[in-house]
Structure formats: C-alpha cells, structure tokens
Design a protein around this nucleic acid. Structure first.
Lengths: 199, 199
DNA sequence: TGTACATCAGTGAACGCGCGTTCACTGATGTAC
DNA sequence: TGTACATCAGTGAACGCGCGTTCACTGATGTAC
C-alpha cells in the first residue's frame, strides 16, 4: 500500500469499471454491491471513493464505457475493409454464447431496464448509446438499399431491427433456464427475420 | 384487529398482490420493499407472512397473476364477438399511456429482466405467460392468413412480433426522460411495422 | 341457541445482515529546494 | 543529485439505514358442546 503511481491508480479505476460492468449486467445496478465488485477489482471497499463520488456516478461511467466498447465492436463488423457485416453481427448477437454470457454482453439488452430505473445521467448515457446503434444500423441499411429507400424508411428499419434484436435477447434470457427450447427458438426466429429484412 | 373472516383475509392477500404488482413493475422485485408494499395494502409488515412464505414466493404469485390478468385483456381484443383486434392491441400496447404507466402495464415488458435475475419458479411463471402471448398472437395471425401460411411460419411471425413489441417498450421506457423524442419514435416506428406485418 | 375456549390475522418491536458511505491511519510517491 | 516533507491511494473498522424475517402479544372469529 501507500501512495500509488498515476498509472497504477488509472489501472485500478479501470479494474473497478470492468468489475462493475460485469456485475451490473448480471445482477443489475441495484443488485451488485460495492464490496463485491471492489473485491473483484482486487481492492477493499474504502478505496472506491478515490475513484467515484458515488455508486450512481459509477453507474454513469459504466454505461458510457460499455456502449463505447460495444460500438467499437459493431464498427468492426461493418468495416468495409473487413467484410464481416450485419448478417454476421445479428448471428453473433442472437447467438447462445451472447445470451449465456450476460456479464460480458451488449449493454443495450443487459442494462435496458436499469436505465429506466436510475437517474437522468444514466439514462442519457443509455440514450446516447442507443442512438449509436441506430445510426450504424441505418448506415448499413442505407449502403444495401442503393438509394432505393428514403432516409425515413432507413431510420424506421434501423429502429425495428434494434427493437426486435434487444427484445429477443431480453426475452431469451428471461426464459433461459425455465424454457430453454423457447429461449433458443426466440433467438433463431428473430435472427432469420432480421437477416431476411435487410434485403 | 383480532382474527379476521376468511373473506377479509382473502381480500388482504389480494391487496398485497396488487400493491406488489405495482411496485415490482416500477422499482423491480429487488427494489421494492415489503414494508412499503404492505403499507400500500393498508397493513403493517408482520402480517405479510400470514399470506406468503417469503418474498420470492410473493414474486411467483405476482408473475402468475399479472400474466393471467393481461391475457384476459388480450383475449378481449381478439374476441370475435367484439371486433377490437391485433391492430388495436398493438396501438394501445405501444401507446404513450402504456409506456408511462409502468406500474400497471404488461408484465412481459415490465418484469422481463427481473425474470432472468430470479429463481426458477419465477422464470417458469414468466415463460408460461410468454407462451400465452405467443399462442394468442399465432391464432390471430392464423385467422388472417386464411391458410396461406404454414404453422411454422405463423409461429415465427408471432415470435417476431412479440420480440419487437417487448423490445420497443423496454427501450422506450429506458430513454423516456433523457430522450423523449427517441422514445416516441421507437413506439411509432414499431407500431407501424407490426401493423404492416400482419397482412 | 348460548356459552367457553381454541384458533389465528394483524401489530409493532426486534433480529441479523448487507448496503452505501465515512474516516483515521499507513506508507510509498511526488515535489521543493 | 540528494534530502525533507507534503500528498494521497488503499486499508479496514465504523456509521446509520433499510432490508427480509421472526416473534410475543392482542382480540375478534370460528367451533365444540
């Protein structure tokens, strides 16, 4: 112990953010305790307040970072130089791996209800992240439509795809252990529909 | 006080269920305290355990009752004798009133994340309720398709509509105060898509 | 039908527990000279 | 470059608080005769 270098402090802050991201997704913001996530980050509880003013402050940072991370991944799928595209993205997003690894997945689905139940800064971070998804989906649909659709149509397609994708994921997780066949069916049906809707 | 009649006890149990239904939807199962909901029901905390073994036991009862109630409402929309139908249902479901009255709305959207974060009995109640929605949607789509579609296609349509409807509602609630225009846009776009998809 | 007693629903204080947050302390890092 | 001191990140005990749950008590209801 004793005073740490700036680099060590920054690393600790990142460790807290990562641990919180995992626990918030699995147990919800309210269901994850600061004690537990500080242990995950390799520290004890007291140090938390050297990095964040409050748990709410942490939640805002986690929402921002989670969306920033996932949008980088989405950009990789849509990068013209590396032709993995929306079809592949939907297949991976609506895959069982993503459903079952709730602690590392997309914040759009894992944190959607926590957003509405928390303060305005948290909600703003969620809304910004959602717009990030929508603008990327719209760009991808636009590229495929080759000018055949209006901007309004493209925007609606993006909203519909995003809603269906997030809905299928939260539903698939909600029934995963009690009705595993239904859970798989939700993912498969919606994946088929999204891939068909693009053309 | 003193011992109550069987009718009075049954009424108290119902009052607890109703209060819990409202608070669970707004704050989540974990976020709603037994003290508060017993006050809502007009009693003090001690009486709770004359009606339920535990909070988890209450959660199961609330999930079951909430889905039973909403499926009755859905059946009214689809009743051939009273020709309100799926179009009207989607319009009401995806309306601002439903989004803003989170404490009385559909459990499919309000409780979807709580389902995955709780025990298997809660999840089973959610899964049963979800199947109730899907079978009614399928019947309505089947009636409209006039035999032009296979049972598998009908089932997929029901799953896609349900996913999109639930996704739009949780998203609209997640961004309601931070991005009200986006919230409205989500509801409107998805409503248009669901009504178009029926034909 | 009337009486005596057992049953049990609601009360409210109390339980242990974990939560978010605070704080005096330690000691290595950063800084001034 | 070396020394003296101020800074501050992490520690772990402690805070007040609200949680889910328990329990002794009260007294009206239900029941046996």
């Amino acid at each position: 112990m004793g005073r740490l270098t700036k680099e060590a402090k920054a690393q600790n802050r990142q460790n807290i953010l990562d641990a919180a991201g995992r626990r918030f997704r699995t147990a919800g913001v309210d269901g994850a305790g600061i004690d537990d996530l500080m242990k995950d980050a390799g520290m004890t509880r007291g140090g938390f307040y050297n990095h964040f003013d409050s748990k709410e402050d942490l939640a805002v940072a986690v929402f921002q970072q989670s969306f920033a991370d996932v949008l980088v991944v989405l950009d990789e799928y849509l990068d013209p130089a590396d032709p993995r595209d929306l079809d592949t993205f939907f297949a991976d997003y609506l895959g069982r791996d993503h459903r079952d690894s709730a602690d590392g997945g997309c914040p759009s689905a894992a944190l959607v209800v926590d957003s509405g139940r928390h303060g305005s800064a948290v909600q703003q971070a969620y809304a910004d992240g959602a717009e990030g998804f929508l603008s990327r989906f719209a760009a991808a649909f636009e590229a495929r439509s080759a000018g055949r659709r209006s901007a309004a149509e493209i925007r609606e397609m993006a909203i519909q795809a995003f809603s269906e994708m997030v809905g299928a994921m939260v539903l698939a997780r909600a029934v995963r252990t009690a009705a595993p066949e239904l859970s798989d069916e939700l993912l498969n049906s919606v994946q088929r529909n999204l891939q068909a809707a693009e053309s």
